Computed example of a mutant assay.
Amino acid sequence: MTRLCANLSMLFTEQPFQQRFAAAANAGFTGVEYLFPYEFGSAEIKTQLDEHDLTQVLFNLPAGDWSKGERGIACHPDRVEEFKAGVDLAIEYAKVLGNTQVNCLAGISPTDTELARVHDTFVDNLQYASAKLEAAGIRLVMEMINTRDIPGFFLTTTAQALEIREQVGSSNLFLQYDIYHMQIMEGDLARTLENQLAVIKHVQLADNPGRHEPGTGEINYHFLFEHLNRIGYDGWIGCEYKPLTTTEAGLGWLASHKLI
């Protein structure tokens, strides 16, 4: 059964962050995700979740200075201690908010560092984070991102992620599969979702081109939703797209897919 959550960093952005929880619930969503909770107190976010009967599905580990273009620090050798502190902070928030899953963004590969060292740093950080999170009862996922939107991003394909997962050797490390990013980088969406079902624990969606809502581009979401149900995917699907106009105007796809 398909379970959708609203990404509050992308949807309902016409409203202040704290008001987006009510908007998501009113639109029929039962879960929410977003990039980061850290600008707000965990208690005030928990109040919004409880008031609107929403499940906190996922957020990212701290990822550096987002406003300055940083997109993760997990592959940066000179920021290992900052990464470790971020893991502790994420655990504090997750324990209050109730989510049992967080995502690690590898980051943009530093150009002044040998690629092998960047790779090893990422592996080491994932080993640390997966163990620390497992002790707290929280699953770790990592996300592959396309290099068109984020040039130089370190983790870019399913094959690379699977290789890294094997090197990390943790039973608490899985994949976050963003359909939009992977359509750009590798295609073959349905086959990959089916073949890697055991390690894909979170899915996100947007159409391509444009990263707008389903139905605005080339991806056959009617087929993919049926496919995910058929193969037995039982996780959440995060709606991480940029509305073509406004969030409310673009929600018609939910009804057309008979999802809400």
Rank of each mutant, 00 (worst) to 15 (best):
L175K: 12
L197S: 05
F153T: 01
H181R: 13
V118T: 07
N195W: 10
Y128S: 03
R117W: 02
V203K: 10
E134Q: 15
S171P: 09
V203H: 12
G152Y: 04
N172L: 15
T156Y: 07
L133H: 04
L133A: 09
E163N: 05
I164Q: 08
V96M: 06
T100A: 06
W66H: 05
N195C: 06
Y177F: 15
Y180H: 13
G86A: 06
A159C: 11
I91T: 11
N99E: 10
F83P: 01
T192H: 14
F154N: 05
L133F: 07
F174H: 10
Q176D: 02
G187P: 10
E166K: 15
E82G: 01
L140S: 02
W66G: 00
V203R: 14
N103G: 06
K84V: 07
Q196F: 13
L173V: 07
Y93P: 04
Q160H: 14
M142P: 01
D88I: 13
I179P: 03
E114H: 10
A90H: 02
S109D: 05
G72R: 09
I73H: 01
S170F: 12
D112Q: 09
L155A: 10
V102M: 15
G187V: 09
V87M: 02
L126N: 04
L197V: 08
L193C: 15
I164K: 04
E186L: 11
L205M: 15
M182I: 02
K84P: 05
N125M: 08
N125R: 07
F174R: 04
G107P: 02
R79P: 00
L205D: 00
R79H: 04
I145S: 07
V168N: 05
A106L: 05
L155F: 05
Q101Y: 11
A159E: 09
R79Y: 00
K201W: 06
Q176Y: 06
M144F: 08
T158K: 13
D207I: 01
N208R: 03
S109W: 00
R148A: 02
